[in-house]
Amino acid sequence: MVDSFDLGDIVEMKKQHPCGSKEFEVIRLGADIKIKCTGCARIIMLPRSKFQKDAKKIIKM
């Protein structure tokens, strides 16, 4: 579980994206978190609680 994160951080998620990548870049903060897949550049929007539960670790800050 990740508690502190910022814009531009690269985060490793528990589940991988269908393209095969587990790494996502945080591109929007708020009640919802918007992340972009580093493999295929698709954008996903998650509620903050689900994002914090599913994120394993911050790779790059």
Rank of each mutant, 00 (worst) to 15 (best):
D3F: 13
D3T: 14
F5Y: 13
F5E: 06
F5R: 01
D6K: 08
D6P: 01
D6G: 05
L7P: 02
L7E: 02
L7H: 02
G8D: 10
G8K: 06
D9Q: 05
D9K: 04
D9H: 11
I10E: 08
V11E: 04
V11M: 10
M13N: 11
M13Y: 12
M13P: 12
M13A: 14
K15A: 13
K15Y: 13
Q16E: 14
H17A: 14
H17Y: 13
K22S: 14
E23N: 15
E25Y: 01
E25C: 05
E25Q: 10
V26P: 03
V26H: 02
I27Y: 02
I27Q: 01
I27C: 02
L29E: 05
G30M: 15
G30V: 15
A31G: 15
A31T: 15
A31P: 13
D32Y: 15
K34H: 07
K34P: 01
K34L: 12
K34F: 09
I35K: 01
I35C: 06
I35P: 04
K36D: 05
C37A: 10
C37G: 08
T38N: 03
T38Y: 00
G39V: 13
G39D: 10
C40L: 15
C40M: 14
A41I: 04
A41P: 00
R42T: 10
R42W: 04
R42D: 12
I43W: 00
I43M: 01
I43H: 00
I44P: 00
M45S: 10
L46R: 03
R48V: 12
R48T: 10
R48Q: 07
R48S: 06
S49L: 09
S49A: 09
Q52A: 05
Q52F: 01
Q52S: 03
D54A: 12
D54T: 09
A55K: 03
A55Q: 03
K56I: 14
K56Y: 02
I58V: 15
I58D: 07
I59N: 09
K60P: 01
K60N: 07
K60S: 10
K60R: 10
